[in-house]
Computed example of a mutant assay.
Amino acid sequence: MSCGEPHETDCSEVLAEVWLLLDHECDEDRDAQLRRHLDECGPCLARYGLEEKVKTLLSRSCGSEHAPEGLHQRLREQIRATVLEQAEVTVERSAAGTVVEVNQTRVESWRS
């Protein structure tokens, strides 16, 4: 997804990491970079808001019951993997840091 405007961080990259942002799992630099994008991109901010509401609704629906930590971690990892796979994003972590790669397919239409 792209709103068509130039940004430091591509829209699809931000949307692929929106759950990491919601769960406060980004380092400070990445958090700031994603939030800058959301401040300047209305479509991504709307999508972020939707995801935030889903998270809040899920939290309320579960009441005061808490899943075991192991289950919670496995679900978080599966959700992250699914989102990244659907967005064609790869994440590689190493001692040097985290590398995020977004593979985009650009479709253009030509009119004569």
Rank of each mutant, 00 (worst) to 15 (best):
43 P>M: 03
44 C>V: 07
39 D>Y: 11
42 G>N: 10
9 T>P: 00
82 T>L: 15
35 R>V: 07
74 R>I: 06
10 D>L: 04
110 W>Q: 09
36 R>Y: 03
111 R>G: 07
78 Q>T: 14
97 G>V: 06
65 E>W: 02
83 V>C: 09
92 E>T: 15
34 L>M: 10
104 Q>H: 12
101 E>I: 13
61 S>K: 01
107 V>A: 12
95 A>F: 10
87 A>K: 05
106 R>W: 11
9 T>W: 01
7 H>P: 00
68 P>F: 05
23 D>M: 07
99 V>G: 02
47 R>N: 02
88 E>V: 12
87 A>R: 07
29 D>F: 05
39 D>G: 06
100 V>W: 11
54 V>P: 01
101 E>F: 08
18 V>S: 00
13 E>P: 00
28 E>P: 01
95 A>P: 13
80 R>F: 11
46 A>M: 04
51 E>W: 02
35 R>K: 15
44 C>H: 05
91 V>S: 04
57 L>A: 10
35 R>P: 00
105 T>V: 15
6 P>F: 08
47 R>P: 01
4 G>S: 10
70 G>S: 11
62 C>Y: 06
109 S>C: 09
57 L>K: 03
33 Q>F: 00
52 E>Q: 14
85 E>F: 11
63 G>H: 07
29 D>N: 06
41 C>T: 05
102 V>R: 08
27 D>A: 01
72 H>M: 13
83 V>R: 14
49 G>D: 13
70 G>I: 07
33 Q>N: 06
64 S>Y: 08
42 G>H: 13
1 M>V: 15
90 T>Q: 10
32 A>Y: 00
9 T>G: 03
46 A>T: 09
110 W>D: 04
76 R>V: 08
102 V>Q: 11
78 Q>I: 09
102 V>N: 11
29 D>L: 04
89 V>Y: 04
63 G>P: 00
80 R>Q: 15
50 L>Q: 11
6 P>K: 07
